[in-house]
Amino acid sequence: MSGVWVLIVVALPLIGLLVGAVIEVARRSDLTRLWKFVWLGALVLIPIFGLAFYIVVRPPRAEQVGGPTDVSNAEAIVILAERRQHGDLTEAEFHMELAAITSVD
């Protein structure tokens, strides 16, 4: 493999991941200062092994979109239909609330 090719497909993503890991360790609130220092030291002094080890043992970052989401018209219609299905809304109430959301009644 040529030097440029190795730089692009090997070094570049490794550097990107390494920088990402360093930023993540610095921002983590679940680590004590000592552990942050240990991890940052490992990532800087033995970058490849430190990065591999960090990737394996780091806790998963939750991807949950916390709390209520913005309710779009589409979402509001689905929620109305579910409330009707569960018996929380009568047919008349469903159509009244639906009319408030859409022009269809």
Binding site: R28, S29, D30, R58, P59, P60, R61, A62, E63, Q64, V65, G66, G67, P68, T69, V71, I79, E82, R83, H86, G87, D88
Partner: peptide, 24 residues
Amino acid sequence: SRLKPAAPAALIGSGDVSAGVLTS
């Protein structure tokens, strides 16, 4: 059914759904 109607304050996630931050 005793299962009550859907609450509008729902949570939507993608993939790993766990606690809000790095989990223990």
